[in-house]
Design a protein around this nucleic acid. Structure first.
Lengths: 161, 161
DNA sequence: GTGAAATCGTAAGCAAGGCTTACAATATAC
DNA sequence: GTATATTGTAAGCCTTGCTTACGATTTCAC
């Protein structure tokens, strides 16, 4: 039993892959002239699949803080890709919609994404890929649960003190 | 054939998992009182496995720019966890060593890492996990190759112009 | 009904993890 | 010996996230 942590441990590899993926995606989007950062692209795609939701819900779906989403929205809005419309049912809330200008971009994102992933996953069969995909989703769910646990703990500690 | 990109596409899930993993790791390290950021921990672990290398080589192994590594080293050095010794064979270079003070920390990192990964991977069998691990390494290798290709292209474009 | 508490979005500012460009010191090749 | 390549550093930027504090609403308890 080694007492040295392995720099190739699963967690480190995951982080490496994510970092490299992000930077590869960034290079692609840049060279395709789409003018978005990966985070913005991720946000836009998510909005397109939740058309007309309020910001709070989008943030929860994306697993980020509402404030973080708000800054992304500022940027996407200034590019004319999304709209914030007041919610007729709740005047505190705003509903988010994509504009017609966004749809070409969304198609472009999809193309680049598919292309890139095809390169990156070369050498892995489709069925195996599907299995890995499923497992990663499980990891994500576990991590989600963990985050909630920790948040609950922190809350309890603060309240109880 | 949907024309909408899927927010649950493999690439996005990978990035989600990495982000959540990093923040979970951060919470753990913080609550264990280790006083390091995940990036510093990753660097320290890598150095321990490459004891006595020069900065350039460590950076290449980690897949980051030498300058990025340099700032991590500054921090680790100020914490007394590593040393930069002049390379007797090349006065431009410096060799990096961990100090005795680092070894307890490295053990601590390993513990937290194992603990966390056990929680996160609960519900996945050991053999399946090993398979995923291997596949992720393949992804990382593909991404490495891609980065080099892109770098070569950029270089060619600049030189040829 | 009304007053306290929760909720939605925003403002402002910070941290971590990366990058690039420019440069000084040293090595190496011719 | 002079030109070129390499090592590490300085300085400053970007992206992606966070937190804390706040105003405007809405909702709930009474």
């Amino acid at each position: 039993m080694s007492s040295r942590p392995d720099p190739d441990a699963l967690g480190f590899v995951l982080i490496d892959v994510a970092r490299m993926l992000r930077s590869a995606f960034e290079r692609r989007i840049a060279s395709a002239g789409l003018g978005l950062t990966p985070g913005e692209a991720r946000t836009l795609v998510r909005i397109a699949s939740l058309e007309g939701s309020r910001q709070f819900d989008i943030a929860r779906r994306m697993g980020i803080e509402p404030m973080t989403l708000s800054t992304y929205l500022d940027r996407l809005q200034s590019l004319g890709l999304i709209e914030r419309r007041p919610d007729p049912a709740d005047r505190r809330a705003k509903l988010i919609f994509t504009t017609p200008a966004a749809s070409a971009l969304i198609t472009g994102i999809r193309t680049e994404q598919l292309d890139l992933m095809q390169q990156v996953t070369s050498g892995i069969g489709a069925d195996e890929l599907a299995q890995i995909h499923g497992r990663l989703k499980l990891l994500r769910a576990n991590l989600s649960a963990l985050e909630e646990d920790d948040a609950a703990l922190t809350l309890a500690r603060e309240t109880g003190r």
